[in-house]
């Protein structure tokens, strides 16, 4: 049982894979599936750059074995929206200056999607609390907070 056969859904597509038991979910996504939008920032579960949605909930994929995700539906940043059909969060991150270098951006978008799923109309304070598992060094977070508020308003039909 040094290996594990996975049967999962990634960004809507079924995936079968045979991985070593000690393969991290982040390694599996980046290296085996070549979905490099999920970033490696600290590998200790702090920076949040590797966040992905597992059954709709944001996790840090560097703190999770690929084996643990067996049977789950995973959404990475590549599955959040497409170039021609961006998620409202992706649009508002662009418009509000929610990104600069872009390295933390996938993780923030995933964390934001999780937040809005739990709390569709968060206050600014709730947005900030909802981002407490993600680090950004470029924006000072203001553009990110603004972007999530704007997306929330748009998604709620304002």
């Amino acid at each position: 049982m040094r290996r594990k056969t996975l049967s999962i859904t990634v960004n809507g597509e079924p995936v079968e894979a045979d991985v070593p038991a000690n393969r991290l979910l982040s390694e599996f996504i980046r290296e085996d599936l070549a979905l490099t939008g999920t970033k490696r920032g600290c590998e200790t579960g702090v920076c949040g750059a590797c966040s992905v949605l597992v059954d709709g909930k944001a996790l840090k994929s560097c703190l999770c074995l690929a084996a643990q995700a067996d049977g789950a539906s995973i959404t990475t940043i590549e599955g959040l929206g497409s170039r021609d059909d961006l998620h409202p969060l992706q649009e508002s991150f662009m418009a509000c200056g929610g990104l600069q270098c872009g390295y933390c951006t996938p993780g923030f978008l995933i964390a934001a999607a999780d937040l809005l799923a739990r709390n569709p109309r968060p206050s600014d304070d709730e947005i900030r609390q909802g981002l407490s598992g993600n680090l950004c060094r470029c924006t000072g977070y203001q553009g990110i907070v603004d972007a999530i508020r704007e997306a929330s308003e748009k998604m709620n039909g304002h």
Binding site: R30, A34, L35, T36, G37, T38, K39, R40, T76, I77, E78, G81, S82, R83, L86, Q90, E91, F93, M94, A95, G97, L99, Q100, G102, Y103, T105, P106, L109
Partner: peptide, 23 residues
């Protein structure tokens, strides 16, 4: 004008390629 970064579209899709993404 407060235009988004020209790299924003690829960055929000996670498709900007950093050195560690290259293979």
């Amino acid at each position: 004008q407060p235009v988004p970064q020209v790299s924003a579209l690829e960055k929000v899709q996670g498709r900007a390629v950093y050195a560690g993404d290259l293979a």
